[in-house]
Amino acid sequence: MPHVIVKLWPGKSEQQKTDLANQITEAVMATLGYGEESISVAMEEVSSKDWKQKVYDTDILHGEGELYKKPGYRM
């Protein structure tokens, strides 16, 4: 714990996904104080044609209590 899930369109390289997972891990360690052994990061690829139904409508539009960063807005 914690487990971070990144949903993204297909097409990023394995190296890009690995680099992102490493950067997320570093940020979680620095911000929340967990050790690396406690953190997991998953990448879930969602096609652009399914994005609205599977991600935007469920996680972004109706995920108000859990969403900490909205598209287009800087925190």
Rank of each mutant, 00 (worst) to 15 (best):
P2K: 06
P2M: 03
H3D: 03
H3C: 10
H3F: 09
V4A: 14
I5G: 00
I5Y: 08
I5T: 14
V6Q: 02
V6H: 04
K7V: 06
K7A: 08
L8M: 13
W9Y: 15
W9R: 13
P10N: 03
K12Y: 02
K12C: 04
S13V: 13
S13F: 07
S13R: 11
E14R: 07
Q15D: 06
Q15H: 06
Q15G: 03
Q16C: 07
T18E: 13
D19K: 11
D19T: 12
L20Q: 09
L20T: 12
A21K: 08
A21F: 06
A21E: 09
N22P: 06
N22D: 14
Q23M: 12
I24A: 06
T25I: 07
T25D: 09
T25L: 02
E26N: 11
E26Q: 14
A27E: 14
V28D: 03
V28P: 01
V28T: 00
V28S: 00
M29W: 05
A30D: 15
L32E: 12
L32D: 10
G33E: 00
G33D: 02
G33P: 06
Y34T: 06
Y34K: 07
G35S: 12
G35I: 01
G35P: 08
E36R: 04
E36L: 04
E36D: 04
E37I: 03
I39D: 07
E45N: 08
V46T: 13
V46M: 08
S47W: 01
S47M: 01
S47P: 03
D50T: 12
D50F: 05
K52D: 15
Q53A: 13
V55P: 01
V55N: 02
Y56R: 05
Y56N: 07
Y56F: 00
D57W: 04
T58Y: 05
T58H: 05
D59F: 02
I60K: 14
L61K: 15
H62G: 02
E64K: 13
E64N: 14
G65K: 09
G65Q: 10
G65R: 03
L67M: 15
L67S: 11
Y68Q: 10
Y68N: 09
K69I: 10
K69R: 06
K69Y: 00
K70P: 08
P71K: 06
P71R: 03
G72A: 07
G72W: 03
G72P: 09
Y73L: 15
Y73C: 13
Y73R: 13
R74E: 03
M75T: 00
